[in-house]
Computed example of a mutant assay.
Amino acid sequence: MIIPWQQINGETLTNLLESYALREGTDYGEQEVPFDKKIESLRSQLENGDIVIVYSELHESVNLMKKEEFKASENEQL
Rank of each mutant, 00 (worst) to 15 (best):
I2Y: 02
I3L: 13
P4V: 08
Q6T: 11
Q6W: 03
I8F: 01
N9C: 07
T12E: 15
L13A: 08
L13H: 06
T14S: 12
T14M: 11
N15D: 10
L16P: 02
S19A: 13
A21R: 08
L22C: 05
L22W: 00
L22G: 07
E24A: 12
E24R: 13
Y28S: 05
G29L: 04
E30I: 09
Q31C: 05
V33K: 12
V33C: 05
D36W: 04
D36C: 02
K38T: 01
E40G: 00
R43W: 09
S44K: 12
S44R: 11
E47Y: 05
G49S: 09
V52L: 03
V52R: 13
V52W: 01
I53E: 01
I53D: 01
I53K: 05
V54D: 08
V54H: 14
S56F: 07
S56V: 12
S56C: 15
E57D: 15
L58T: 10
L58S: 11
E60N: 12
S61I: 09
M65L: 14
K67W: 01
K67C: 02
E68F: 03
E69W: 04
F70P: 03
F70M: 09
F70H: 15
F70A: 04
K71V: 14
K71Q: 08
A72C: 00
A72K: 15
S73I: 10
S73H: 10
E76M: 15
Q77L: 15
L78G: 03
L78Y: 15
